[in-house]
Design a binder for these strands. Structure first.
Lengths: 223, 223
DNA sequence: GGCAGTTTAAAACGGATGTTTTAATTCTGC
DNA sequence: GCAGAATTAAAACATCCGTTTTAAACTGCC
């Protein structure tokens, strides 16, 4: 019933980091919540930064493995043919949002991850890039193959926008409440909602990017 | 070098906050960059929190006024008829992204704003809700009128997703770079790209929410 | 039992933070 | 020119931070 000190610290840190941010979370807050001694953090992890890194790696490695496994499964099924965009979106974002539905820590972690993208400390960005390198390469290749008519730069932007939507879907419940009372307790509903939105955005008509600057973009259609 | 101390502090704070976050930015960093004395912050603003609030209000009030003005213009033009979704999106997100293109401080501020949504300190959320109340009410009404066939809850989620895409479009340049080398220097290109994506997502086919549970392995807990 | 190695406990360290205090300086109206 | 207010300057304040140190308690093994 009592996980060891190391795990309790990781769990407490995860919970507090999503709530107060990287700088706003102190070791004393963590060790108090974990019912551990202050020095235990430096004993088990070496430093606060190393603890934060451990919090991320614990789940992020597994998440990206799941993403690649899902992509693998689709690609085996397709026998060399390009995948449907919907499948690739499912493999990348579906896995993430399903992890975000997991009450057992996954939810907390995904919210933490979402908020970290826009709150980039140097050392976090460094190992984030490391953790993401493979999965990004794989998914970029799959998308480029599936959408040969979409310019790569255009796609990268859309992928970026999709990450933003995912981030808010998962972690922005506070911002969401600005909009009014809304139910965010049904993970299955969130899943289909986000999927629909993402694919709609991904498959939107390509904009015409012109080298000449758009002067005063009134409501004239650019598409 | 000529503006008064108060303005220099606001400008310095804006620059540093977007770079180091709310907790990571210290008063000493701010006053050093502003070439002001440490105590000047507490003299002019009363506290660090009040300074941060002033940084936000200085531009956010104006931004939301612009949004409402844009919406007003469209509604006058429509003479009581529902607006096109594209127009409403333009009024809300277009104004924001155009402000983000403004080199004269607006760019910095919008990145700060974008990263703040997912990094909500209590006192920030409080006055953010206050600043947004009117503009949210106006745009919700306009959207509901323009899209009577879309359930309101569904729309609120899509609006939330759109905010996420906007946030990443503006402030997530670091996360974007995870995807590879990409040019994010052309604000006009970003404008049409984001618009196209947002409207694609907004107008995506409605998902069937009800009883279709997603069956897939649940996220495993990390040990 | 006793002894190594591992883990926890408690206290202290140097440094940085937001804020306050006190004094000097600059500005303003007459 | 000068009193009085507004602003700036410099130092000190208490508090909290991450980390380190020292000692005690526990653990498995002979």
């Amino acid at each position: 019933m009592e996980p060891d000190t190391r795990s309790r610290i990781l769990d407490a840190a995860e919970n507090l980091l999503v709530q107060h941010g990287l700088d706003g979370t102190t070791l004393r807050m963590i060790t108090t919540e974990a019912k551990a001694n202050l020095a235990a953090v430096n004993y088990h992890f070496g430093s606060k930064e190393a603890l934060i890194e451990a919090v991320f790696r614990r789940r992020l490695t597994w998440l990206n493995e799941q993403r690649i496994a899902a992509l693998d499964a689709f690609e085996v099924e397709a026998r060399g043919a390009p995948l449907k965009p919907r499948q690739i979106v499912e493999a990348f974002f579906g896995v993430a949002i399903r992890m975000a539905a997991d009450r057992n820590g996954g939810q907390t972690f995904m919210r933490l991850l979402g908020r970290t993208y826009t709150e980039p400390t140097d050392f976090v960005r460094t190992f984030l890039a490391e953790e993401y390198a493979e999965v990004i390469a794989r998914f970029k290749a799959a998308f480029f193959k599936a959408l040969p008519d979409v310019p790569q730069e255009e796609f990268l932007w859309r992928f970026h926008f999709m990450m933003g939507a995912l981030s808010y879907a998962i972690s922005g419940a506070d911002a969401l409440r600005l909009l009014g009372p809304i139910d965010d307790t049904d993970p299955d509903a969130l899943y289909v909602r986000l999927m629909s939105f993402l694919i709609g955005g991904l498959r939107a008509p390509l904009p015409e990017i012109q080298s000449k600057p758009v002067k005063k973009p009134r409501a004239k259609r650019a598409a």
